[in-house]
Amino acid sequence: MRITFICGSLNPGQDGVGDYTRRLAAQLALDGHDCQLIAINDVVGDEETADGTQIIRFKQLLSNPEKSQQAQQLIAQWQPEWISLQFVCFSFHPKGFIHRLTPFIQQCVGTAKLHIMFHELWVGEQPSLSFKHKVMGGIQRQLILKALRGWQVSAMHTSNALYQFVLSHHGYSASILPLFGNIPIETENEPNVAPSLDSKKRTLLFPFSQRHDWNVSETMERFRDLAHAAGVRLKLIQAGQIRAGSPHWSTIQEFCKTHEWECELLGPQTEQSISKLMHEADIGVSSAHIALAGKSGAVAAMQEHGLPVICTITDPISRRFKPDLNQTDELYSLFDDTTRLEYLFSSPKRFAPKARLPSVAKQLIESLSTSTT
């Protein structure tokens, strides 16, 4: 199958969806498919070939008719069977307004079929958002729904049940395509046991950043109570680019000092180093809501490495959507089911590491192959 992927940026290590697209295309190439990658709002203009895959990066293409026409010609010459739009509205416009993206995609499609992977929708579903963000989200919603009415979409995916519900509410059917991790597994033969040598210490790993509005004080107090109930002390490790989560870590460091816990703020690390930390930790921590854990590459990476993951956000994510919390031995919500969480801190259980990427690539191809529209 020949697939052209379109996304905002393909800047390596700096754009989550761009890294996702690169890794997915590399797996598809291994499976015998042909891929073309085009970024239309990147930080540089560049062209390269990686493992036989054509990668083309444009700066601010949507505001430049010449670049737009050039991209359309490159796609037409390559003759894809499918165009796969990796959708995050903020990737294409600083406020997420896609009025220029809509005609560009219409002009690119030609005889190809159009697939959309909704990594994000519009903002505004969360009741606690500010009035400003709700207004902005309303404009985003109108523009996205208008685009969907104009585009001839043959297949649609998203990574989580909330977005699936919202799209269904507006008359669009999207299947779930799980995310794979953003950190490759260095060793797939780690022992299926908690790795701590000290039976009274639990290592909690916080990969990458946390949300700017993360409930950090409540989270630390909850960890304190769970550690006390389990009779263990904690070691907290942050690894990866911290970005919006930076202000939280002074609070965390002070809390750890007060309770005589260890705390390491490592910052940016190689993928190999982060993979090693995921192998060595007892529990992974995410600032996502459990119902949105499916859209987090960090959560997927921790689960691929065999880590049980605790999601720490509990604010309502939608007035209409009633999530199935879907707590399992691999995924927990911090402020629910105290008994299970106390047992996790007392006897953390790791799982056999397993990469999802091959199965996700296979699922995508099977879905596109069976599309009848």
Score class of each variant (00 low, 15 high):
Ile185Lys: 08
Glu186Asp: 15
Thr187Pro: 02
Thr187Val: 07
Glu188Ala: 12
Asn189Ala: 14
Glu190Pro: 00
Pro191Ala: 06
Asn192Arg: 07
Val193Asn: 13
Val193Ser: 11
Ala194Tyr: 02
Ala194Trp: 03
Pro195Lys: 09
Pro195Leu: 13
Leu197Gln: 15
Asp198Phe: 01
Ser199Thr: 14
Ser199Ile: 09
Arg202Asn: 12
Thr203His: 11
Thr203Ala: 10
Thr203Glu: 12
Leu205Pro: 00
Leu205Asn: 05
Leu205Arg: 03
Leu205Cys: 03
Phe206Ala: 14
Phe206Trp: 15
Pro207Asn: 06
Phe208Gln: 12
Phe208Cys: 08
Phe208Thr: 05
Ser209Trp: 01
Ser209Gly: 13
Gln210His: 09
Asp213Leu: 01
Asp213Cys: 01
Asp213Lys: 04
Asp213Gly: 04
Trp214Val: 14
Trp214Ile: 13
Trp214Arg: 13
Val216Glu: 05
Val216Trp: 02
Ser217Met: 09
Glu218Tyr: 04
Glu218Ala: 14
Glu221Asn: 14
Glu221Met: 11
Glu221Leu: 13
Glu221Tyr: 07
Arg222Asp: 00
Arg222Lys: 08
Arg224His: 14
Ala227Pro: 03
Ala229Asn: 11
Ala230Tyr: 00
Gly231Leu: 00
Gly231Ser: 04
Val232Tyr: 03
Val232Thr: 06
Arg233Ile: 10
Arg233Glu: 12
Leu234Arg: 04
Lys235Tyr: 06
Leu236Trp: 01
Leu236His: 03
Ile237Lys: 01
Ile237Asn: 05
Gln238Met: 04
Gln238Arg: 05
Ala239Thr: 02
Ala239Ser: 08
Gly240Glu: 04
Gln241Phe: 02
Gln241Val: 06
Gln241Cys: 07
Arg243Leu: 11
Ala244His: 08
